[in-house]
Design a protein around this nucleic acid. Structure first.
Lengths: 230, 230
DNA sequence: AAATTAAATATTGTATTCAATCATTGTATC
DNA sequence: GATACAATGATTGAATACAATATTTAATTT
C-alpha cells in the first residue's frame, strides 16, 4: 500500500493514526521541525509524509504556511459522507454478487473481535468498528475500491472529530450484524439499504447538532504515537 | 487543488499531463536526476512531485528503486474501469436531481469545443473528451466527487495507454450528446444507462484485445511538456 | 561459452545548509 | 487606545552533500 522511503513511513503512519483516533484534532498545526524531532528524522523525511497525507485529504498543506490537520467545512463534511454512501453501496452490491460463504466467515470473525473489546478498550473498539467497513471493501477483491473506502473512512473520522460531540457518533454493533445477515442472504437491496441506514445514523448524530471543538498542541500528543505499533 | 511548493507544481503537472496524454508510457522509469535537469530543479523538488503522483496512482514508487509510470495489470485495469462506472453513475444521479438549465448550458458549451477540434487537433480532442467527464463531476458541486472522478479518469488514460491499440478507444461525440439530452430530460435512469454504455464501449475496445506496448526514454518526451501551459 | 563474483557506476535515501517567506512582538505615530 | 510600521524570530522552500542501495560492467572461474 504505502511505498517510498523507509524512514518516512513511520511518520506517515503515526500521524495518520493520530488523526484518525482524533488525538490530533482538525486545524492543529503540524510543524516539520517538531515532528522531525519527535521521530528523530530530518524535515525532508517529515515533508514526504505530509505531502502524502495532503494528497489523501487528511492534512492541509499551504505554501509557505506549512501543514495542519485538515479542517473540513460543514459542506465538505456532507460531501464526504455522501461519497462514503456511494462507495459503500458499491461494496454491498459487489459482495452480494459473490460467494457469501467465505465473506460471511471473515466478517463474523471480525465481529467477534469487535464484541470482545466493546466496553473494554474504547480506542480499539472505535478502530475495529472502522475496520469493519474496510474489511467489507477488501472482501470485494478490488484493491482500488478498498483504497478509496479506506481513504473515505479516514476522512469521516476527521469529520466526526470536527463536528460530533465526543463519541456520540459510533458504529452500532447490531447494525453490523444486520449487514452481515443481508449479505448472507445474498440480498443486495437489503444490504445496501441497511448500510445506508447505518451510515446515515452515524452522519446524523454527527452533523445534526454540530459541536465546535477547540484545538491544542502537538508534541506531547504525538509522542504517544511514536512506534505505537498495531 | 494542488498545494505545496511552487517549484514542484510544474514538475507534477507536466508529468501528469505527459502520462495522461500517453507520451510517457506505463512502465517507463522516471529518474529523479534527469527530470530535475529537465525542469532545472533539485531532486528534492522532483521527489515531492513523484510522491504525490504515487499517491494518485499514476506513478509507482518503490523503495530504493525509484519511480516509474504506473503499469497496471489487466485485473487492475478492470478494477479501475469498474470504479469509474461507479463514480460516474453517481455523477449522473446527482445531476439529474439538480436544476438542468445551467448544467446543460455548460455541457453544451463544452461539446461545441469538442466538435471544434475534432479531426483538427487530435491531442486536444482527446483531452477535451476526458474533460467532459470531469466537467460533469464538477457540475455536481461536490469537490470530493470531482476529485475522485478526475483521478479515476486519469488512471483510465493510463489503462488505455497500456492495453488499447493506438486511440482505438476514444469517447464518441454522439454519446456525449445523448448523455446531455438525458440530463436535460431529468431522466436519471436513462442518463446513468447512457453513461454506462458509453464507458463500457470504451472499456471493451480497450480491454477485449489488449495490445502490449513497448516503452522508451523520458527526457526528450518530457521536454515537450515543460511549461506546456494551456 | 555460461555462470559467478567483484568492482565500478549510477541512483536513491536522508540530513544539512542557506535563502525566502511568514508570524510576532515592540515601537512610533496619530 | 488604536493603527501602522519595523525589526526580530520562527518556519518553510529548495539545493547541496554524503551515505546507502541498486545496477551495470568487467573479470574470473568452471
Amino acid at each position: 500500500m504505502y511505498k517510498s522511503s523507509t524512514r518516512s513511513f513511520p511518520v506517515y503512519d503515526s500521524l495518520r493514526k493520530a488523526i484518525i483516533e482524533q488525538a490530533l484534532k482538525p486545524g492543529v498545526k503540524l510543524p516539520e521541525d517538531s515532528i522531525g524531532e519527535t521521530f528523530s528524522v530530518s524535515r525532508t523525511t517529515v515533508r514526504n509524509a505530509l505531502v502524502r497525507l495532503d494528497a489523501e485529504g487528511l492534512v492541509d498543506l499551504q505554501p509557505n504556511r506549512g501543514a495542519s490537520v485538515a479542517d473540513p467545512t460543514i459542506e465538505e463534511a456532507h460531501d464526504i459522507f455522501e461519497m462514503r454512501q456511494c462507495l459503500e453501496r458499491e461494496v454491498m452490491q459487489r459482495l452480494c454478487k459473490m460467494d457469501a460463504k467465505p465473506i460471511v466467515k471473515a466478517l463474523k470473525a471480525h465481529l467477534a473481535e469487535e464484541k470482545k473489546y466493546l466496553d473494554v478498550d474504547t480506542t480499539r473498539s472505535i478502530r475495529l468498528a472502522g475496520e469493519f467497513h474496510i474489511l467489507l471493501a477488501e472482501l470485494t477483491g478490488s484493491k482500488i475500491l478498498a483504497n478509496y473506502v479506506n481513504e473515505i473512512v479516514s476522512r469521516c473520522s476527521l469529520v466526526l472529530a470536527r463536528f460530533a460531540q465526543a463519541h456520540s457518533a459510533q458504529c452500532g454493533l447490531e447494525e453490523h450484524t444486520e449487514i452481515i445477515e443481508a449479505i448472507e442472504a445474498g440480498d443486495a437491496e437489503r444490504a445496501a439499504s441497511q448500510m445506508h441506514t447505518h451510515l446515515h445514523g452515524v452522519q446524523d448524530r454527527a452533523l445534526l447538532n454540530p459541536d465546535d471543538q477547540d484545538k491544542d498542541n502537538v508534541s506531547d500528543i504525538l509522542a504517544r504515537y511514536v512506534t505505537h505499533n498495531s
